[in-house]
Deep mutational scan, measured.
Amino acid sequence: MAAGGDHGSPDSYRSPLASRYASPEMCFVFSDRYKFRTWRQLWLWLAEAEQTLGLPITDEQIQEMKSNLENIDFKMAAEEEKRLRHDVMAHVHTFGHCCPKAAGIIHLGATSCYVGDNTDLIILRNALDLLLPKLARVISRLADFAKERASLPTLGFTHFQPAQLTTVGKRCCLWIQDLCMDLQNLKRVRDDLRFRGVKGTTGTQASFLQLFEGDDHKVEQLDKMVTEKAGFKRAFIITGQTYTRKVDIEVLSVLASLGASVHKICTDIRLLANLKEMEEPFEKQQIGSSAMPYKRNPMRSERCCSLARHLMTLVMDPLQTASVQWFERTLDDSANRRICLAEAFLTADTILNTLQNISEGLVVYPKVIERRIRQELPFMATENIIMAMVKAGGSRQDCHEKIRVLSQQAASVVKQEGGDNDLIERIQVDAYFSPIHSQLDHLLDPSSFTGRASQQVQRFLEEEVYPLLKPYESVMKVKAELCL
């Protein structure tokens, strides 16, 4: 049975990233139509530049190519590739079939990587351009969430054990800070992308030097003109047959890092959902379990974690691919890159769409948070109580021993009897502590235990987050809708 299948058929496997999760716009960027249309555009740009620099290419040939950029006979191309065992030459023939007058000058002087690699770089750039505003929107939604809850005390956790208090907004800023680093890295790697350009079979530009009869300047002009037509500021000066596969490492490393950030955020949300302090959106008709109707599973956060793990592992592909590119190139890269580049971007696209949807509907339960604080705060307040007693004339050592005994009794009630923490009640009825009984409410005010959390939130948002989001103001209103 021949390899390949009808990918629109229910009898043929289709990647869930495309069929179930990723956005239509990201799927289109990695589609065959987008790819092969870009090949034709690159052939047109090459012909236009070659004509401008004096090669015998007519206006009629150029116009014929322009008129057929979208006229792609995919069936013919597939048949040609089956016959020739070469995808680029299959599309040269297919393009030439609908451009008979231009057929002889299509791909003039070029090698397969002229269309293959340059198209990949265009796709990487455009895919990054799709991700950047999506990530900015996630940051914006979380920034709104953090600002609104900047002063809401909550129990902090280290080692997932109760620690000092923080605020809900401050905790959210930990998430935002990681995503801001990801946004900066995505922008950097996007701006650092260079075009492969017009380089020939081993990167020496020998074929173009021959076409222009040894004119170095025209060869350099050709490279520059096509690079500018493709919208790049610069091209690699040095290439082998391909652009260095280190570029793929750079791009997928940034995406993998984004995956790590999203995994951490969504894990926190899942843990908070278990504590009943916070939940992701839950639709009115949504079913959490087929057997347990009360369940409210954090399905979206779980999906993000599941896909983020996949995204983090994909960076190993370009690392290994770059390491086995012998001399000017081997074909070890080809099949692998067809999979890992598309999957990385479709996965990143999915987790950003999902995280935006989550961040637009996060639900906080202040009463649950308050109750958990009441359970733990008495123990945390013991040092403040000791200091207040010393100020009232008591002995630190005597007070410490009193607190120690009462704390152990209260802990026994919590752990052995399943009761509430009654340390404060014990202190309130103990005559030894009568000098500070009137101060206990103040000493137990949760806001006095959150330090500068709310001020940190305000400063972080104003100095770091809002300036970073400013270039994306025009796209901030787009909502994230999930079908599944």
Rank of each mutant, 00 (worst) to 15 (best):
G4S: 12
G4C: 15
P10M: 12
R14L: 13
P16M: 14
A18R: 15
P24I: 15
F28C: 07
F28A: 12
S31R: 06
D32S: 12
W39H: 14
L42K: 03
L46P: 12
A49Y: 00
E50Y: 05
T52C: 08
T52D: 07
D59S: 06
Q61M: 02
S67D: 04
S67P: 04
L69I: 13
N71I: 08
D73I: 05
K75C: 15
K75T: 09
M76E: 14
M76W: 11
R85C: 14
H97M: 09
C99W: 05
Y114P: 01
I122C: 08
L124W: 11
N126R: 05
D129S: 10
K134F: 04
K134W: 13
S140P: 04
L142F: 11
A143R: 09
F145G: 03
A150R: 07
S151D: 10
G156F: 02
T158L: 00
Q161W: 00
R171A: 03
L174H: 08
C180K: 12
C180Q: 06
D182K: 04
L186G: 14
L186Y: 10
K187L: 13
R188L: 10
D192T: 15
R194G: 12
G197L: 00
F208K: 01
Q210V: 07
G214E: 11
L222R: 02
K224N: 10
V226P: 00
E228W: 15
R234L: 06
F236Q: 06
I238V: 10
T242K: 05
T244C: 09
R245I: 01
K246L: 03
E250D: 11
H263W: 10
T267W: 00
I269C: 01
N274H: 15
M278D: 03
E280V: 00
Q285D: 04
I287N: 04
G288N: 03
S289W: 06
S289K: 01
A291V: 02
M292N: 00
Y294I: 01
R296V: 07
N297R: 03
E302L: 00
H310V: 11
L314W: 07
V315N: 07
P318M: 01
L319C: 00
Q320D: 00
T321W: 05
A322V: 12
V324F: 08
Q325K: 01
E328I: 03
E328T: 00
D332I: 01
A335S: 11
R337Q: 05
L341M: 05
L341N: 02
F345T: 13
T347H: 15
D349R: 04
L352G: 07
L355E: 01
L362I: 03
L362P: 04
Y365D: 12
E370W: 10
R372L: 04
L377K: 00
A381L: 15
N384Q: 10
N384P: 07
I385W: 05
M389L: 12
V390E: 06
R396H: 05
R396D: 04
C399R: 03
H400G: 04
V414A: 02
V414P: 10
Q416C: 13
Q416G: 11
G418V: 02
D422R: 10
L423C: 03
L423D: 06
E425C: 10
V429S: 12
D430C: 08
S434D: 10
H437Q: 11
Q439P: 06
L444V: 13
S448R: 12
G451T: 04
R459D: 14
Y466E: 12
K470T: 14
S474V: 14
K477M: 15
A480I: 15
L482E: 14
L484V: 12
